[in-house]
């Protein structure tokens, strides 16, 4: 994808939904990332251009080592790019994160074992905003727990929750910040297939209700197609975007979406690209 204008009226994945902002919410231009591994510079990401509209749901998919997690960390401000420019909501990512515009969810829920689900969900908000009253932060966290479907689990410790429930708490913790964008790094990667499916439908529901801009890193083709408006397929050596595939599945998406021709076509296309991306290793 080479469209770099901030206002992007020719965005290929943009459905002609009325009243939606056409501003690109996350914008990356010419991103490259070098890691120094035992004294040698290694390029893990090259020529990354991204323009993600506000309220969109975008997936990054690719083989292991394609740098999709690194790209997410660049967007989150956790890894500074060696070249290029990134903005999130018009700000540098680090600054955007400090202003609570970025919610992060990792593969591990990373909950604090001595705190209840409610306190865990409130913890990051309390860290980010020292002026917020404890009661208020807990109320907000409670509302987010209900949003992710954890009513009644507020008082439970992480050890009393299943893997899927823990990940829901992590999502609630990110949402409690009321961020503009939600960056998720294989959030369901450690879950079993059935729980994954449930979590996907929940995430779709949360996205539809909150209107956050979501960037999801995933290994799962199904997940990417079912959830996204646009899928960026990444290749290896160095990590780069080899194709951007708009997903034309109708909204709202349901169980029936899996049977649509658009789903099957997108799935087949992604599978082909992933195999090619893995095989094509320019060195």
């Amino acid at each position: 994808m080479n469209v770099m204008a901030t206002i992007d009226t020719t965005h290929p994945a943009k459905p002609a939904a009325a009243g939606e902002s056409l501003l690109s919410h996350i914008c990356a231009r010419g991103i490259a990332v070098d890691y120094v591994v035992s004294g040698r510079r290694q390029r893990v990401l090259q020529d990354i251009d991204l323009s993600i509209p506000k309220g969109s749901f975008v997936s990054l998919i690719g083989p292991s080592g394609c740098g999709k997690s690194t790209l997410l960390k660049v967007l989150a401000g956790l890894v500074p790019p060696s070249e290029g420019e990134v903005t999130v909501a018009g700000l540098a990512p680090g600054e955007a994160a400090k202003q609570r515009m970025i919610g992060l969810v990792f593969q591990d829920a990373t909950l604090l074992p001595w705190k209840s689900a409610l306190e865990n969900a409130a913890f990051l908000l309390q860290t980010a905003d020292k002026s917020i009253a404890r009661k208020q932060s807990l109320e907000r966290a409670g509302a987010m727990l209900r949003l992710v479907g954890l009513d009644g689990a507020e008082g439970k410790r992480p050890s009393q929750l299943s893997g899927g429930m823990r990940q829901r708490v992590a999502i609630a913790r990110a949402l409690a910040l009321d961020p503009e964008v939600l960056l998720m790094d294989e959030p369901f990667g450690a879950l079993d297939a059935i729980t994954r499916g449930e979590m996907s439908r929940s995430l779709l529901d949360i996205w539809e209700r909150t209107g956050k801009t979501v960037v999801l890193v995933t290994h799962s083709i199904d997940e990417a197609v079912f959830l996204s408006r646009e899928v960026h397929v990444m290749g290896v050596n160095p990590g780069r975007i080899i194709e951007t595939l708009p997903i034309t599945l109708a909204h709202p998406r349901t169980e029936a979406s899996f049977a649509e021709a658009a789903f099957t076509a997108a799935e087949a296309r992604l599978r082909k690209l992933l195999i090619e991306g893995h095989a094509r290793r320019p060195s």
Binding site: K98, T110, L124
Partner: peptide
């Protein structure tokens, strides 16, 4: 303490001292 959690804390502006006090020590 999981590095990703430390990154999460840092991303919202927590310093080393705060992470030590609120996360590392109880952990």
């Amino acid at each position: 303490v999981e590095p990703s959690f430390v990154a999460l804390m840092q991303s919202v502006g927590a310093g080393r001292g705060e992470i030590l006090l609120r996360v590392r020590i109880p952990h």
